[in-house]
Amino acid sequence: MRRIISVLVENEPGALSRIVGLFSQRNYNIETLTVAPTEDATLSRLTITTAGKPQVIEQITKQLNKLIDVVKLVDLTEGTHVERELMLIKVRASGAMRAEVKRSADIFRGQIVDVTSSVYTIQLTGTSDKLDAFIEAIGAASVLEVVRSGVTGMARGEKVLSL
């Protein structure tokens, strides 16, 4: 099953490599990983998406918690949550396709952030599924380049991940 794990870690050199290392060392998979400092400069927040059987996920959270640099973590998929991923996608947009691409971007609430005579660069945010759906709608033949940020997210409502 797909899981989203949010992790608060000490903003120390080496902390990220310990986390990434843990995944390869213990044969867990990482599908996406995002990381940036938080409003508290001593902490970074990571979001990891992974997949595995419940026992494996349990081990992942336990092993992560064991790392000294890890302050706190939560499996967002255990409760209701908001998740977003950002994508920049460069699409061929010439001739008749130009209007078509624009229309698709509008439907998906994408923004065109860069334009040339033959290319649109579109920014899109949403769940990973939505981004996948957009790529499909555009058609592989028209897609020139894609970059995705990986998933980030937080729990809904009052629940917060903080010190």
């Binding site: 050199p13 080496g14 490599s17 310990r18 290392g21 060392q25 000294i68």
Partner: peptide, 14 residues
């Protein structure tokens, strides 16, 4: 050394 020993230590400091 921090990198080489990483998977076999409880923790490490540079």
């Amino acid at each position: 050394m921090i990198g080489v020993s990483r998977p076999i230590v409880k923790h490490s400091f540079l």
